Simulated assay, not measured.
Amino acid sequence: MMKETTRVHSQELSDLLLDLYSACHELAMSAFLPHALSSIKRRLPFDSAWWAMTTLVDDQYKFHASYVEGLPQNMHLLWLSIQQDDVVGKAFVANPDQTLNFTPDQVDSTKGSRWLARTTGFRHVLCTVNVKLMIAQRHFLALSRHDDRHAFSESERCFKELLMPHLNSMLDINRMTELRRLHAQGSEQRQPMAVVDRLGAIHHAEAAFMEQIKRQWPRWWGPRVPAPVLDLLLKGETSHAAPNIMVQWFWVGDLAVMELSPRSPQDALSRRELEVAKCFAGGASYKEVAQSLGLAPATVRHHLRVIYGKLEISDKAALVRKCNSDGGAAL
C-alpha cells in the first residue's frame, strides 16, 4: 500500500510540474502565481496562501514582493509587527529548504503567533523557505488551513518540500521570459540580464550577470545591486558606466531588467565629443565641424585633442577606423 501511495504522489507531482513549467513560459507575470497556486490547491488543498520574497538588511527584514490568497493584503506588515514573537517565522528561517508542518498548539505557543493566527484565521501551516545564497534572498511559501480538525499529513509536507525548488525556478523563468518579451527589440545579441526592483534588490540573475558583476566589484555580495549602480537607480537614471562594463536598465511596472555589456572606448566620450568625432571622421574640416555645431574652431581642436587622448589614437585616420568599427557603432 505504501509503495502504491508513493507512486500516486509521484505521478501527481510529475503532472503538476509539467503543467507549471509549461505555464511559466506562456503566462504573464501577473497570471502565473495565481495559476500555480490554483494548480497546487487541486492536489494539496489549503484555505489561504502567502508567498513572499525578503532580504535581511541590518537585522531587519525587507519585503520586496508579497502575494496573498485568503489573507489580508497587508499580511507582511502584520507579520513585521510580531516577528520577534513568531514561532513559525523563527522556525522556518532556522531550517532553510525544509518544509515545516505547524499544528494549532505550536501556532498558539507564543503571544505574537497566537495574535496573528486569530487575526488572519490560519491554524495549520505548511511553510517552506528557500535561500538564494548568491544574493542573500529568501523566498517562502506558507499554505494554511483554517480548521483545527484538518491537519496536513506527512505525505503532503513531503509533496510541498519536493515542489518548492521547482516553483522558485519557475518564478524566475516566468519573470525573465515576460520581461524579455516586453523588451524585444529585434536584436539577436543577448546580454547578461537580471531582474531588480525599485529598491535595487535582485529578484533573479543569470549566471553570466553575476560573474561579470563580481569581476567588476569583487567585494560585492548583494542582496542589492552594487552601490554605484544603486545610487543612480534610486535617482531615476537608467545606466551606469563602470570601468569595464556598461550597466543599463529599463522598467516594466515595479521591476526592471538590468543588462550588462562590455565598455568600448567611445563610452568615455561626452555627448559633445561624440558629435565632434562623428563630424570630423565623416570628412569635415575643423572649420566645417565648427560651423555645423556652432563652435569656435579652437574649441573643436580642443575637443579633438581630448577625444584622441580618450580613444588612445593620434590622427584622423585612426578616428575614422574607430568610427567604422563594430565598437564604434555609437558614433
Rank of each mutant, 00 (worst) to 15 (best):
M193N: 01
M53W: 10
Q137S: 13
D254V: 06
H166W: 02
S14Y: 09
A242G: 08
R215V: 11
M164C: 09
A298R: 15
A91D: 04
I82V: 10
L141N: 03
G112Y: 01
T119E: 04
L44T: 10
R224M: 04
S30P: 10
P218E: 04
V196D: 09
I313K: 00
H139Y: 09
L16P: 02
S81T: 13
M2A: 06
A142Y: 03
L56D: 05
P192K: 04
H303Q: 12
L80Y: 05
A94F: 12
D197V: 14
Y286C: 02
H166Y: 02
R224H: 14
R43D: 13
Q11G: 08
Q98I: 11
L293Q: 09
D231P: 15
S264N: 08
Q248R: 06
I307W: 00
R118T: 06
H303I: 05
S30F: 03
I307P: 00
G309T: 12
Y21T: 11
H183A: 13
L179R: 01
L18Y: 14
F152A: 13
L141G: 01
V252D: 12
M176P: 03
G222V: 08
V131Q: 05
E26F: 02
M2D: 11
A284M: 08
A49E: 04
E259V: 07
F152V: 09
A28E: 15
H240Y: 07
M2E: 10
L167C: 04
V57Y: 10
E288W: 12
W79D: 03
Q191D: 06
D59T: 13
L133N: 06
G112C: 02
M210N: 15
F280W: 12
W251D: 13
S264I: 14
R7Y: 05
A296W: 13
E161G: 06
G89V: 11
V68Y: 13
S155P: 04
I135T: 04
M246P: 00
C24Y: 02
L17H: 15
S22W: 01
A151T: 01
S109G: 04
H146N: 09
V225G: 06
A329T: 12
M193D: 03
C323M: 06
V195K: 02
N168A: 08
H124P: 11
K160A: 14
M134R: 03
S292Y: 11
L78M: 14
Q60L: 09
G70V: 11
L331K: 01
G121N: 06
V125S: 12
V57M: 03
H150A: 13
E288R: 11
E312N: 08
R138A: 02
V8I: 13
G328Y: 09
Q98L: 11
L234C: 08
H150G: 12
E26H: 07
I40Q: 00
E178K: 07
F122I: 02
L20V: 07
K310I: 10
R219G: 02
P165N: 09
N244E: 10
D59C: 05
M193C: 01
M258R: 02
I173V: 07
F32S: 00
A94E: 06
D19N: 14
R138K: 05
L293A: 03
Q191N: 04
Q248T: 12
T55Q: 08
K316E: 05
M75P: 14
S261M: 01
Q212L: 12
L18T: 13
V88L: 07
L269Y: 00
L255N: 08
C158P: 09
K132F: 07
T299F: 08
F152W: 07
A277Y: 04
H150N: 11
